[in-house]
């Protein structure tokens, strides 16, 4: 953690970037209370402020998440092209609801705003990779592939 912090100048405008990098560096993709404390100390900002900023943005999480974070685009174009079916199918395949993580800690299911790949709607993002033109069958094979990869 120290290494990541010291890459940045002690300026408050680096807060978002630091939080991003800290979160990305962890297998469980989340920011713990200790992380926030460390950042607040490093940037000399009140913990309440760091907490306030972090919780404002939807890309930061504060509970341990799975290895693969599945973000389902909920925007109108995806909705029109069948995002609801995709959402239901995902809940069925994974056996979890939105905001939850599977017991094997492999998948976390989240909703997302427009991913900006509306041309291939309905779309999801798994970690940093986009998957589009989804059908229930395609979804199944993607999840199976991820399960095999582990």
């Amino acid at each position: 953690m120290k290494e990541i912090l010291e890459k940045y100048e002690r300026k408050s405008d680096n807060l978002l970037a630091i939080l991003h990098e800290l979160q990305d560096s962890k297998d469980e993709h989340y920011l713990s209370r200790e992380d926030l404390k460390a950042v607040s100390k490093y940037l000399n900002l009140p913990l309440s402020m760091v907490h306030g900023v972090a919780t404002f943005y939807s890309m930061y999480a504060f509970k341990p998440r799975g290895k693969y974070i599945i973000r389902v685009c909920q925007s109108p174009p995806c909705h029109l092209m069948g995002a609801t079916t995709i959402s239901k199918e995902l809940m069925k395949i994974l056996g979890i609801k939105f905001g939850e993580t599977t017991k094997d800690k492999l998948f976390t299911l989240e909703m997302s705003s427009c991913l900006g790949v509306c041309g291939v709607a309905p779309a999801i993002m798994i970690n940093n990779k986009v998957y589009g033109n989804l059908t229930p069958e395609k979804l199944k094979s993607i999840i199976e592939e991820k399960r095999r990869e582990k």
Partner: peptide
Amino acid sequence: KKGAGAYVCGEETALIESLEGK
């Protein structure tokens, strides 16, 4: 600078606040 998922940051003054780390 990388945002962190907030639609409202497309509004220019919100964007500036976010740039400042708020």
